[in-house]
């Protein structure tokens, strides 16, 4: 136990946790509106979309790949699922099934192209981003969908309770899906054989192949999982926005990548944890939220995000080099 704690205290996650807690403490003293249930629920709700996608992307990065196309996948999934839901009167299960199925199909296509053509994953997914997105906007004419099924517009509202100021709280669709996504990813990476194999694949692809792991199958699973998360995230976003807009999701893929990378996942594969990703996302969320609460114009929030990314990746690189010792010049 003590051993584990000591190991944790030297990890990237521990440093992130310290930064997030410090930032949270500063904000709590600086403004009374930060540490309120309302603010925290709002934060969770508004960052659910990025968070669910980050959970999926984490698995892809751990496996040694990268996916850029998931925002386009999500756009396609949400458009298909919700236009069918309205037209044919589908229920929760069918709608989610359709969105998830579409996501998985796009993910499997990515994996198949990457593995069978042996093109690097970044190139394939840049191409498929353009293909999915281009075809979606071409076919739909870029039209928004405002007419959503009633049950979907209402969403869910579980475990409702009311605080002293009579403000109601509850678990909404976004928070529920976010929790499910992170839990599922944690179980996958830490408690299943496939998870260990994914780490092995990302750590050393050739060795994993020679150990008898089914590399092609693992990649199908990994990109399929990313597509699965894109499908879920797309519905969380559509429910929050109360509309489907085919052109607003694409362009946010690098935000998700930034969150996962801040969380300590390596682009070289084999490294990355769910806790790190959660903390990376929390850092971005708390910082942007804090800037607004403290009264700094939201026009400057991107500047600070960039600063945090640059400082974080630079310091990570420096620590890694120091740890590697003087062996590497």
């Amino acid at each position: 136990m003590i051993d584990a704690l000591r190991r944790f205290s030297h990890s990237h996650e521990a440093r992130l946790l310290a930064v997030v807690l410090t930032l949270g403490a500063v904000l709590t003293t600086a403004t009374p509106s930060f540490l309120t249930l309302q603010n925290l629920f709002d934060l969770l709700t508004s960052y659910a979309f990025l968070g669910i996608l980050a959970a999926g992307l984490l698995v892809v990065l751990v496996a040694g790949g990268i996916d850029i196309s998931f925002t386009a996948t999500a756009s396609v999934a949400q458009y298909l699922a919700l236009s069918f839901a309205k037209a044919y009167g589908l229920g929760w299960a069918e709608t989610f099934g359709l969105a998830i199925g579409t996501g998985i199909a796009c993910g499997l296509l990515n994996a198949w192209l990457i593995e069978s053509l042996r093109i690097s994953s970044i190139i394939v997914t840049i191409a498929t981003l353009n293909i999915f997105y281009g075809l979606l906007v071409f076919v739909t004419g870029g039209q928004y969908i405002y007419a959503l099924p009633d049950w979907f517009s209402k969403g869910i509202w579980w475990f409702e309770f009311v605080d002293a100021d009579q403000i109601p709280y509850g678990v909404n669709l976004q928070i529920l899906l976010l929790l499910l996504a992170f839990t599922a990813t944690w179980v996958l990476l830490n408690r299943t054989t496939i998870g260990r194999q994914i780490y092995a694949l990302g750590g050393n692809r050739d060795a994993a192949g020679r150990l008898g792991f089914h590399v092609f199958g693992l990649n199908l699973f990994v990109y399929g999982y990313m597509g699965f998360m894109a499908g879920i995230a797309s519905l969380a976003q559509a429910q929050l926005a109360q509309s489907v807009a085919p052109t607003v999701l694409v362009g946010r893929e690098l935000d998700v990548l930034a969150a996962v990378v801040l969380g300590g996942a390596s682009l070289n594969g084999g490294v990355g944890t769910v806790l790190g990703t959660v903390l990376g996302l929390a850092l971005l969320a708390v910082m942007q939220n804090g800037l607004v609460l403290v009264g700094i114009s939201s026009y400057w929030s991107q500047f600070f995000v960039g600063l945090v990314i640059l400082v974080s990746v630079s310091s990570t690189s420096l620590t890694l080099r120091r740890r590697a010792g003087s062996a590497v010049a």
Partner: peptide, 13 residues
Amino acid sequence: LGTMTLVKGISVG
């Protein structure tokens, strides 16, 4: 990725 966000942040800000 960091400088992209930072530089765009300066432009937007």
